[in-house]
């Protein structure tokens, strides 16, 4: 365990978020399986009041847990590396955490995406008093639990796995990828270029789809941009790591996604990966709202409004991403006449 006050800060945020989420789950349990809209018996009245409480608790839990996840990210990229011998960025910290660090981040991302999906359903559900989506929303809220539990467990194991006396070789972990072109994290020059072009082309296509969605007032399908967004994130992440980050580092062969978060590089990683996260969550919103719109005509207007907003958000995030990735590359080309 790293003896750093930030570790305790992270756990305080996790505990707060979990308490709120746990209280929300407790209120949502009966709603998920015994919801009987229209009934006026005492049990249903209690369930309705419980659901109102669960929604408020869920929103606050989402905020608390997002804060905890962000603290984890800040800890990995900007704070804990100072306590791990040999670590200069998140790569070294994750190396010291064993495999638990990466797994924790993956589970945190999935849990927050599930909670985001719940929030979309909750917002749509709040537009009609019949509570058309209430049981579904309650189940999605519960669904986040199996993702949150491993996220917390792996976070704990990851922090416990760090041995402040055992040095890591931060750069070696990065350069090994370059020296071993067949390694799992390897991506040759061609692969990096392909990922870069795909990330730009996919981003452009996604921007067009989001723009169309915005322009047609949310009437277009939400599934297509959602699927493209999911695929685009898969391509854009390695493109940032292997290609675009080089223009920040201004050196070749340093495929490290975490150095991008360091103050030396203006913390650009927060904005670049943040834009990707916003695109992904906007995709989840589009997909969820589109399905709700098809199944519940009464919620069509609310879903359409939500889709327009999500499309706008996605478009802005993509513009930011393109600006922060292709922008420095173009600036480098203009300054030196060469691509890296």
């Amino acid at each position: 365990m790293i003896a750093h006050p930030f570790t305790w800060t992270f756990w305080a945020a996790v505990a707060t978020g979990l308490i709120l989420y746990g209280a929300g789950v407790r209120s949502a349990l009966a709603v998920a399986w015994h919801w009987s809209p229209g009934a006026a018996d005492g049990a249903q009245l209690r369930r309705e009041r419980n659901w109102e409480m669960a929604c408020l608790l869920g929103r606050w839990a989402l905020a608390g847990l997002t804060g905890a996840a962000l603290l984890w990210l800040v800890g990995v990229v900007a704070v804990w590396h100072g306590m791990v011998p040999g670590a200069m960025c998140g790569t070294g910290v994750l190396q010291a955490m064993g495999g638990h660090g990466v797994r924790a981040m993956a589970f945190w991302a999935m849990a927050l995406l599930a909670l985001h999906g719940w929030r979309v359903l909750d917002r749509l559900d709040s537009h009609h008093p019949d509570g058309l989506l209430t049981p579904t929303a309650a189940r999605v809220l519960l669904l986040a639990a199996p993702l949150l539990v491993p996220a917390v467990i792996h976070s704990w194991l990851a922090l416990m796995h760090i041995d402040p006396a055992a040095p890591v070789s931060c750069c070696a972990a990065v350069y090994d990828q370059v020296l071993r072109p067949t390694g799992t994290g390897a991506m040759g020059r061609g692969g990096a270029l392909a990922a870069g072009w795909l990330s730009l082309a996919g981003g452009g296509l996604l921007a067009v789809l989001a723009g169309l969605q915005w322009r047609c007032g949310g009437k277009c399908s939400g599934a297509l941009p959602a699927v493209v967004a999911a695929g685009w994130v898969v391509v854009a992440a390695p493109a940032v790591k292997h290609l675009w980050s080089a223009y920040y580092y201004q050196v070749l062969s340093h495929p490290c996604p975490w150095c991008l978060f360091l103050p030396d590089h203006y913390g650009a990683g927060f904005a670049v990966y943040g834009a990707m996260a916003v695109t992904l969550t906007a995709g989840v919103t589009l997909w969820t709202a589109d399905r709700v719109r098809r199944r519940h005509p009464l919620l069509s207007d609310a879903a359409t409004t939500l889709m327009v907003r999500a499309a706008r958000r996605m478009l802005l995030a993509l513009l930011l991403f393109i600006l922060l990735t292709a922008g420095p590359a173009l600036a480098w080309k203009l300054r030196t006449g060469l691509w890296l």
Binding site: A40, L45, E48, W51, P129, G131
Partner: peptide
Amino acid sequence: LRPVAGEVRAEDQPVSRWPARHR
């Protein structure tokens, strides 16, 4: 208060059946 049976309609909306966050 919520009735144990029957309903209250306001401008033809069954307000007594609405959950608290709408009522």
